[in-house]
Write a protein that binds this DNA or RNA. Structure first.
Lengths: 184, 184
DNA sequence: ACTATAATACACATGGTGTCTATTTTACAA
DNA sequence: TTGTAAAATAGACACCATGTGTATTATAGT
């Protein structure tokens, strides 16, 4: 019964995560060693290896947990507008973590993985209206707006959340609408 | 006189560059060691260090040379449309190199550095027309289109240059126009 | 042919890695 | 409360890349 719920395991994993995030505030994941993380966490290096295989592996775990949180908040909403808003709110609710994970050295692929959730709904909505257009144009437009949207959110995070989630979501909605409405 | 033009130096630098690019086809720069590069190039490791300080340093050199080429082709054109086209043509003229440098593991910051040349001209042109708008909206729109444009070019490269430079430049012009004309 | 210097060969201490084998500590359950 | 499984630690190990020495060889340019 006490397999994964062992207090010792929970503590170890917790401090290792904290330790990595703390180190990531000053250096990129690429330059952080297992030894660094363990010294900073006051955890034996062998213990690290019994839970994770590398700093990247540990980071993946952290990211997956955040991703799960964000996805959970989306299960209710189906249209693109509310999905965008809820993603922004999820990020807003995890500001400290997001600041680190999506920082300069942060994993762009993961950021994209998040925005894609909402963006796919955008595209699905517009795809219906664009049957007379080539898939090629749709594909290029998708790439353009996808990456633009991702950058807007990343910039919002990096600038310290000056705008509210509502404001950012509204801007994203508007500019995506402009592009897609005009082209299709 | 023969300082930097020494044939030995030219050869060494050349094979080291080739070696790194070859290795980058299969792994990211992060995982490539000095030892790897030297073994692959059949160059002594000490020789590497007498020219470059790290694999990243070597890559920076390669990137800077490409950047110089691209900038050179731009000195004639002043408007955004022709600048975009000439960048696309420069990339087209260096396909093999660009495929590697802008690959999945490629340096996104460098890709942005390139597209920014043309994009800044776009923005300068539109900035004149948008005095009545907030800098904030302009800034966000800039980020959106900047990153969208970058992604389009990157995608063009990664897909193996299916379209001509003219076609890609035309799409970039059009979609940027749509966004900026509609919002301002 | 001379000479400066580029390239090589060899060596070294350093530091992180991943994986062992004990040994100690501790959470949970009977 | 105590027994036990398993978690954490301690210490050691070979391995490999690093960066920096020193000495030697090869060679491009004059």
């Amino acid at each position: 019964m006490g397999r994964k719920n062992d207090r010792r395991v929970k503590y170890t994993k917790m401090v290792l995560k904290q330790s990595l995030l703390q180190l990531m505030q000053k250096q990129s994941i690429q330059k952080i060693t297992v030894t660094d993380i363990c010294k900073n966490a006051d955890i034996n290096r062998n213990t690290f290896y019994s839970h994770y295989s590398s700093p990247e592996d540990l980071l993946n775990t952290i990211e997956s947990e955040l991703f799960k949180k964000i996805r959970l908040s989306l299960d209710t909403s189906n249209d693109a507008r509310t999905a965008t808003l809820e993603i922004c709110q999820s990020i807003w609710n995890n500001q400290e973590l997001c600041k680190i994970i999506f920082s300069e050295n942060g994993d762009r692929k993961f950021m994209k993985r998040v925005t894609t959730i909402a963006h796919d709904k955008f595209i699905a909505e517009w795809k219906v209206m664009s049957k007379h257009h080539s898939n090629d144009l749709l594909e290029k437009t998708y790439i353009f707006t996808e990456n633009g949207t991702t950058a807007i959110i990343q910039n919002w995070i990096m600038n310290g959340f000056i705008e509210s989630p509502e404001e950012i979501a509204a801007f994203i909605d508007e500019i995506n609408k402009v592009v897609l409405d005009t082209l299709f």
